[in-house]
């Protein structure tokens, strides 16, 4: 033990050091509330909105509006199901969002049809539908559910009637016998 005697200035300095150390310890144990804005509640709201938007983004079984596609408006009261879809846009025919054949001026090229220009069966569409149907049957079989030969057709509003019937005929040949036309639900008043 040293018996050194501190002078007044030194004692003051030691006291100041101890006070500072005490204050520092106090700070680390008890956090005083900060004066800034708390982001926590705002973050909660944002995350909830984000999750909701992401969910509704991927929730819709069929997309009826896109580039080169706008389904017509109808006053129907039925709702869509998640089934095999054929999309007929202004430029292409797609099966489950996979492009199968091009459309030019509202018609499919005669070389793509089984019987030429007057034919109704679109060969690439038929092949793709057979594949899609087989896959769907397997999926449904694995889940132990009953297979329904339903196909949803999403066609652009300007699609010629001839092309619609060609697509339906081809789907019929691929053992898809129950058709549903996807439309945008709208009030009749807007048709006036």
């Amino acid at each position: 033990m040293s018996d050194r005697v501190f002078n007044e200035a030194e004692e003051e300095w030691i006291k100041a050091q101890r006070d500072r150390a005490r204050k520092r310890n106090k700070k680390s144990r008890y956090k005083e509330p900060e004066g800034g804005v708390s982001f926590n509640s705002l973050m909660d709201i944002m995350v909830i909105i984000l999750v909701f938007l992401l969910k509704s983004y991927g929730d819709e079984p069929v997309k009826v509006i896109g580039k080169d596609l706008k389904a017509p408006t109808s006053a129907t009261e039925l709702t869509p199901e998640d089934m095999t879809t054929i999309t007929v846009s202004r430029r292409a025919v797609l099966v489950n969002d996979k492009k199968v054949v091009d459309i030019k001026a509202g018609t499919v090229d005669a070389s793509q049809k089984k019987d030429g220009a007057a034919g109704l069966l679109i060969q690439p569409l038929f092949d793709q539908l057979v594949k899609a149907t087989d896959r769907k049957k397997q999926q449904v079989g694995m889940l132990g559910q009953e297979y329904k030969p339903i196909v949803t057709i999403i066609a652009d509003q300007s699609t010629p009637f001839r092309l619609v019937t060609e697509v339906m005929y081809t789907a019929g040949q691929a053992e898809l016998s129950m058709f549903k036309f996807a439309v945008v639900k709208g009030d009749k008043k807007r048709f006036q």
Partner: peptide
Amino acid sequence: MNMVVILIPLLLLSIVFLKVGVINITAP
């Protein structure tokens, strides 16, 4: 926060709030 604030308007713009319906049809 920056990321979330950017993502929300982006998703709001890309989502089309439309009700989709179907019409049952018998084969041609």
